[in-house]
Amino acid sequence: MKIKQSNIANLPTKYGKFKIKAYKDLDSHQEHLAIITPDFEDIDAPYVRVHSECLTGDTLGSLKCDCQNQLQLAMTFIAKEGGLIIYHRQEGRNIGLLNKVNAYALQDQGKNTIDANLELGFKEDERDYSVIEYIFKDLNVNKIKLITNNPDKINFIKSIGVEILERIPSITKTNKYNEFYLNTKKSKMGHLL
């Protein structure tokens, strides 16, 4: 894996003060972010959220998912408690924005997120977490308190030798638009909801 890194810059937000560093995977051309609290280097086992990019949720406020709510919850919590958010930029479980919108159209016809991806010719989840290992090594992260519901993220982090001292659920309110989506994540993908 060939990675180009940015310098670290200050990132004041409405949630609190952070620092930010970008990582560009020169093979996939995807750019990912590490968002850390100013005291990050002094924390033995930081709180960590690996947040998968969701433009429609994070930026546009889509009610079809819980992504924006999870990101805001993590930013508020980590700003207070200290830690790291990795903004993992693999839109739509790494099928890209155009295909994600096509999957949305299939979901409008009654398909769940997994069946929509499969009908478009993708696996149910195309994400590749290898850049997470690179970021953890770069930031000297060996043990964490992980904020997630996703068993794949837990298993990947354990597989790279990072110790998870605690798992903190990332539970947000459901609504009539995302209830089917969340039920699919729980029943078909094993999410810990």
Rank of each mutant, 00 (worst) to 15 (best):
G83K: 01
G57F: 08
D125T: 00
E126D: 12
I36F: 15
M1H: 10
S52L: 09
I144F: 05
R89C: 12
D66G: 05
A22M: 11
T59R: 15
D128L: 08
R93C: 02
N150H: 06
L97Y: 04
Y177M: 07
T13V: 10
K2S: 14
S159R: 14
V141P: 01
Q109E: 13
N149S: 07
C65E: 06
D58W: 00
T174F: 10
A45L: 08
I160Y: 14
K100T: 03
Y87N: 02
D115L: 05
T76R: 15
V48Q: 03
G121I: 03
T174A: 08
F156N: 02
K2W: 04
R167A: 08
D138H: 14
I85V: 14
L165K: 15
P46M: 06
L73I: 01
N10V: 10
N69R: 13
F77A: 12
I114F: 00
E31H: 05
K158Q: 15
L97H: 03
E126M: 12
T184F: 13
D42M: 09
A79R: 04
K4D: 13
I85Q: 00
E124S: 10
L60H: 15
T13S: 10
D66I: 08
D115S: 05
L33N: 04
Q107F: 02
M189F: 11
E163V: 13
I144W: 05
P12G: 12
L106D: 09
H191S: 11
H29Q: 15
L192G: 10
E124H: 11
D138Y: 14
Y104H: 01
I43E: 01
Y181Q: 03
L33I: 02
M75L: 15
F77T: 15
I35R: 00
S170C: 11
Y47T: 13
E119C: 06
N99T: 07
E179W: 02
L146I: 04
H32M: 12
N94G: 00
I147T: 02
Q5M: 10
A74G: 12
R49I: 09
G110A: 01
N69T: 07
I160C: 11
N155V: 09
I164W: 09
T76E: 15
T59A: 15
Q70V: 03
S6M: 11
D152C: 08
Q30H: 03
L120K: 00
G83T: 07
Y15C: 02
N183H: 12
N142I: 09
F77S: 13
S159Y: 13
I132Q: 02
R89E: 05
I154Q: 08
C67N: 11
Q109V: 04
N112D: 13
N183K: 10
E179P: 08
